[in-house]
Design a protein around this nucleic acid. Structure first.
Lengths: 112, 112
DNA sequence: TTCATTTATCGTATATTTGCGATATACATA
DNA sequence: TATGTATATCGCAAATATACGATAAATGAA
């Protein structure tokens, strides 16, 4: 891949693809579910629940942070993670919009 | 990555992650939109629309096929692609379920 | 101050993805 | 039959993702 062609696509599709990619690993889905379920959202608790090394979990957290689905603040030795609801809802809306747009076109007779 | 740890997660999360991963590239989102929009769904038309080489588009199509979002049949020289609505709707349902489950837990007071 | 704890980051290995050109295959048509 | 067209697949290169252990940084506790 000498060049990355992603930028040549529609801006909306790029944003949605980035969100979807963030959901594209079961560890990150599990993390989001875990964050939603808890109030404390401490990193160590997530590490305990997942079958991965601490450094790997930290990496997945950074990735979720990168696309804005998760927010993290340091409170003493521990760090506190939680879902960035504003962006999470933005993602859900984008997903619904795109999937809805596609579904709307569903025809009585598919050609294959 | 000496070992692939994905199989250690919840089956539902794995399925959803696979679907999400398939949506994780703007080319594949564009392909799905294009397939939904057209009746003929011929590969060449998709190649024309996308800023990618024919072989690359073919690869993306195969990936969508692999997760079951797209179905392809050969009709003469040309091949005919279309959305596999059964699986597409399965994906939408899984997405809604998981995202809904997470959103439901949204608390008045986020800790960070 | 010293030690333990928590977490991020670095370095590294390996796997997968992305992308292209070249080529093979299969059909349609002249 | 020979030729052109459409598409899949192969081979390759580069980029990115996945995963871990080791280590650094920061804090809290003894």
């Amino acid at each position: 891949m000498s060049v990355n062609k992603k930028s040549l696509f529609e801006a909306e599709d790029i944003v949605l693809a980035d969100f979807a990619k963030a959901l594209g690993h079961p560890a990150r889905i599990a993390i989001l579910k875990e964050l939603a379920k808890r109030k404390e959202c401490i990193c160590g608790e997530i590490v305990e629940v997942l079958p991965l090394a601490q450094s790997t979990v930290s990496q997945h957290l950074q990735e979720l942070k990168k696309v804005g689905l998760v927010r993290g603040t340091i409170s003493g030795v521990k760090s506190c993670y939680c879902i960035n609801w504003e962006n999470f809802e933005k993602m859900v809306n984008l997903l619904n919009l795109a999937m809805g747009e596609i579904t709307k076109q569903k025809l009585e007779d598919s050609c294959c």
